[in-house]
Write a protein that binds this DNA or RNA. Structure first.
Lengths: 159, 159
DNA sequence: AAATTGTTGACTAGATTACTCGGGAATTAG
DNA sequence: CTAATTCCCGAGTAATCTAGTCAACAATTT
């Protein structure tokens, strides 16, 4: 479990997407503008999110991305693993650190830390993030009217 | 709280040092050899550890480093903060990520994750790492006889 | 046919990591 | 005193990673 800004961007983008579920496909251009993330960078990230089957894509005008499953079944850990290609990364750096043939002295420490982090992030669903966000501001883009009030009401009832 | 291999190296080196407390000052050359960490890199790390007052240094022949306080009062979090110059790092990357003037949507998520990680690492003392390590192998360098059996016994009684 | 949107791959500036190198300064042994 | 040992410090650096850019293309709709 690596924690980089790449993972944070991905979570932010997924949250933006999740907030607009039901409004039809959401374009990367829109997410890019609202969240101030470069469009090309988002393309990279969503390529990985799509291959991880967290989002579905629809091409052509009116196309975009939608979340592929129930928001309750997607966790922050899923998103981070999808974009950061976790590759182990914590097991004493894989190759160079484990001392001689026995496990390095701090092996268990890092393994347990990894479990702690993963547990925490596995228990935060996209649904809960959406809920908290709605509690803060009735609709993020209230002023821009890109998503109707009706949609917001329906979505929050689903939680 | 950043988690890099730099921090892992520092924890490994501090554990090596802690295992030898009472044998007199421990040289970086020795830690370098035992833990397969480059000497020059250790010098950089121990410069920071000394400025953070986690270790004391003694120059000249027979010199080296000693842990500056009780092993119970040094945590893994202390060590990582000392070498990684944590600078905040988690607060939505400080500058670029926080959206507009309100806190970015995932601000609370990262803040709480940070707290979770910090709490975990703040509750692991050097003393507990030494204890676990001694439980695994009676003395790490048993075969090399650099540290007497008497010393090992005294140290484990202190826990 | 033209516009829109996703898809892919190659490339890159800048930052960071994990070092090396060279010269010091303090201390002790002989 | 001299030489050896050890810490101390700053500059430099190759490799890697981050956060992108750019260009071309594929699918779909109007």
């Amino acid at each position: 479990m690596r924690l980089t800004t790449k993972g944070r961007f991905a979570v932010t983008a997924m949250l933006d997407l999740a907030m607009r579920q039901g409004c039809g496909p959401v374009t990367l251009a829109g997410i890019s503008e609202r969240q101030s993330i470069s469009l090309s960078y988002l393309e990279q990230l969503f390529g990985k999110l799509r291959r991880a089957e967290l989002v579905d894509s629809i091409r052509g005008p009116g196309g975009g991305y939608t979340v592929s499953k129930n928001l309750l079944n997607i966790t922050v850990a899923d998103i981070i693993v999808a974009v950061d290609e976790s590759v182990d990364a914590t097991q004493c750096a894989g190759r160079e650190n484990c001392h001689d043939n026995h496990r390095c002295m701090t092996h268990d420490l890092w393994t347990n830390l990894n479990i702690t982090i993963f547990d925490y992030l596995s228990n935060v669903s996209l649904a809960s993030l959406v809920e908290k966000q709605r509690a803060k501001e009735v609709c993020v883009m209230q002023d821009k009217r890109e998503c109707s009030a009706t949609q917001t009401a329906t979505a929050s009832k689903a939680l």
